[in-house]
Amino acid sequence: MKCRTCGSKAVINMRQHKLALCKPHFLEWLPAQTERFIKKYEMFTRYEKVLVAVSGGKDSLSLWNILIKLGYQADGIYISLGIGEEGGYSDLSRQLCEDFSLDRNQQLHIVDVKKEFGETIPQFAQRTRRGKNKACSVCGLTKRHVMNQVAQKFGYDVLVTGHNLDDEAAVLFGNTLHWAGEFMLRQAPVLPATPGLTRKGKPLCRFYEKEMAAYAILSDIDYIYEECPYSIGSTSIYYKHQMNLLEHDNPGEKSHFYLRFLRAKDNGLFAPPEIIKQDLHECSNCGQPTSGKDVCSFCRMLEQGNEHLERSQVN
């Protein structure tokens, strides 16, 4: 198969775009497309300060790499979750993020969950009602809280994550199966800032996961290949597999599913925009916006953890 641009040997064939490219042209194409989506969805400009959430995985490190290449002011944030043993998943991913930032001379904020809040994610998951030994919900809640906290504290204009199209399509697939309308309304390439909440963007939301893996490998980005131990057998991987079965028989299906959803939402299929505005106020503990009665769900989780701790110390 030949590169469409130069005719030399292609390294990747993207059936959904009917586009095969060689290594140099793929490495040009992907950042150029990213730039196009950043503009199309009005995510941020070169005058704004961007905070990139990095996990050590292929998507987030590639995103950081691309933004630096494109000339954006992009710093990183890494949240150390305390997953795995010493030298295991969290330690390794942290090392990869630190090395990446040092190599490129970029600033990286590191927040260690245990140091900051007293316990690791697996410990929270065990102790709290929310966790029920399932770490992913606790982990997601903690990451959202910490990322917003750091973005607000240091005055970043936008917080970006490395979600790719497979991530977005899988979430949408799950939400559609459960008709989780309130979540669907909030799924978008960019979420504008609201009081206390920094703007969020997903510059990779139009790329297939396979394209992102190819970009990371062809750019020699050292990323963590090992899976988070909690994601094994997760529903998100199951949904991605189901989407890929459809994609395999009908190239472009995954992309259409997501893009037609965005279009339908823009056209008001789900609800007029004013209905989705929730009544938010400040959490009495941390000050971040919440729709809860008093404290936000993150602080509620912390309290539950502490109650349990105190109780077990008394016993």
């Binding site: 198969m1 292609a10 390294v11 990747i12 064939n13 095969a20 290594k23 995985g57 292929k58 998507d59 992913c136 497979d166 991530d167 996961e209 396979k210 992102m212 893996a213 190819a214 490998i217 062809l218 290949y225 899976e227 988070c228 909690y230 994601s231 094994i232 997760s234 998100s236 991987i237 991605k240 597999h241 890929n244």
Partner: peptide, 30 residues
């Protein structure tokens, strides 16, 4: 993603006797 001696290859390539193809899983959770 399929690689041969570290180089990525497209799906139309014919695999020849004696070679090793390493597959890199691209799907991750979360």
């Amino acid at each position: 993603l399929a690689t041969r001696n570290g180089d990525m290859l497209t799906e139309d390539e014919i695999l020849v006797d004696g070679e090793t193809i390493t597959l890199i899983e691209v799907i991750s959770g979360g």
